[in-house]
Design a protein around this nucleic acid. Structure first.
Lengths: 259, 259
DNA sequence: CGTTGATTTGATGCCATTCAACTGTTGTGG
DNA sequence: CCACAACAGTTGAATGGCATCAAATCAACG
């Protein structure tokens, strides 16, 4: 639940060139030679693949501090689009690997970044294995909460559109819209306007020990150790509980009534 | 379409300990400390997570030469189960990183393995973004064809059960069964027995230039360069074409009639 | 203030799941 | 080698959830 802002090692920074891209522009194309990596300085980027009939698949979102283009391939097999106006630091792979072979700290950092990206992909993958739309959206929201910069107003803004979310989760915009509305109806989130959905994040503040108390006697599940709590929190039910912030347990499990 | 058998660097091998696990045994548990990586010597392993109500999610299959446990975390967030009897080389992460910091070749190898795993996860992820069961299964089969060891009998054996496939694709065994049968009916594959599904892989032999000719005039799509062909082959339609090996184009696109 | 694009809402159909019964395969012991 | 049990896979009918198509509503921008 900690905010990871593991940016690129300072000694790398001079190697890169800072560039700006306007909203909706293409940063890399699918068939570009994969000889650069990109660190997000500000804004939001998505990695995506275009299919026929206008279908699009989004394989990941990238926020400030994230790095994309680390995968091992001659050509990118995905494109990168700017969701908002973005500033990125472009770094030649060649320069990076050269630096890594002389500086051990850089090599460690590079491996750590790649491994972190691997963990992210794994999480996304597991959320896509859920058969229900609600589970996928809950996973997505929790992920966004954990990665977003903390704000004092207990709100978290999502920069991406419903279409982006749909393409990221393998759903349609209509299903995303309906599911979000249902979550709002049940008190888990609040939707404010189109372009920046917001949701409560009081539970980000809550430390593990406090949460243990709150979980007392829920549905017969009652994690007693912090370890058990961790395990519970990564499960679909646990994530749902996080999202609902334990405030409306009575209505928990209640399904949409479609009228 | 090449068979990647990028095993661990020879200089690492003395560090590891070789171990055997019987079929269906657990190699690592979800809450184990993530301080080892595992190289498959022989057999098949899956990384999975168990959910309540007996639900299971499989995040990846690992074949000889593959390495798992590379993700960056204190604890594994997935378990590893032996699909068949397996032999693995167990390597302490600590020893590996120590070796990597002194030997540049090892460091490169470690990064390459992690980046390859990242690419794999990306591919799996993209196949899960397909809404239809058939597309997911076609992606899965193509992936298996590309990773399987080449055999002279033009057949490829899949060691995993229908349940494994279902848990890997986020489907049910019934849907997997029905879709596979439908693919067989349409001439794409042949199912032989339970424990080892087999399918034709003549097209593995075909080089790109030959395939270009075969693609002439299909559905108005006619890739002219090798680059275009590559792009076509990674799309759902292209993978379907690969699977059908262009032998039954007349029946291509035909759907199951459910009776 | 009208236009454009994004989102929501509604009605319908299809496909995957579910539950259930059945069939085929594998493995074991007589 | 056969009989049997235990398991793995297939097949069928009914349900439900998501996609699809269509229309209405809302926000942003000039």
């Amino acid at each position: 639940m900690s905010i990871q802002t593991q940016s690129i090692h300072p000694s790398i920074q001079p190697v890169g060139i800072v560039r700006s891209y306007p909203r909706k522009s293409e940063i890399v194309r699918e068939d570009d030679a994969a000889d650069h990596v990109y660190e997000i300085v500000s804004g939001t980027v998505c990695a995506c693949r275009m299919l026929r009939e206008g279908r699009r698949q989004i394989s990941g979102f990238y926020f400030p501090g994230d790095v994309f283009g680390l995968e091992n391939a001659k050509k990118y097999n995905v494109a990168a689009q700017a969701i908002t106006n973005v500033v990125v630091r472009v770094i030649k792979k060649q320069a990076l690997t050269a630096l890594a072979s002389s500086d051990r700290a850089v090599a460690d950092q590079l491996l750590a970044l790649t491994a972190r990206e691997l963990t992210r992909k794994q999480d996304h993958l597991l959320s896509l294995l859920s058969t229900t739309a609600e589970e996928r959206i809950i996973c997505f929201l929790i992920d966004m909460v954990q990665r977003a910069s903390p704000r004092e107003d207990h709100l978290i803004a999502l920069p991406m559109s419903r279409l982006d979310i749909a393409d990221y989760l393998g759903l349609t915009i209509e299903t995303v819209s309906r599911t979000l509305w249902d979550l709002e109806r049940r008190g888990a989130i609040k939707i404010k306007g189109y372009h920046s959905i917001v949701l409560r994040n009081q539970f980000v503040e809550g430390r593990a020990e406090e949460m243990l108390d709150l979980f007392e006697g829920i549905k017969g599940q009652r994690p007693k150790t912090e370890e058990e709590l961790d395990k519970w929190l990564v499960s679909p039910e646990g994530k749902a509980a996080m999202l609902f912030n334990l405030t409306s347990l009575s209505r928990w499990g209640e399904r949409a009534r479609h009228s």
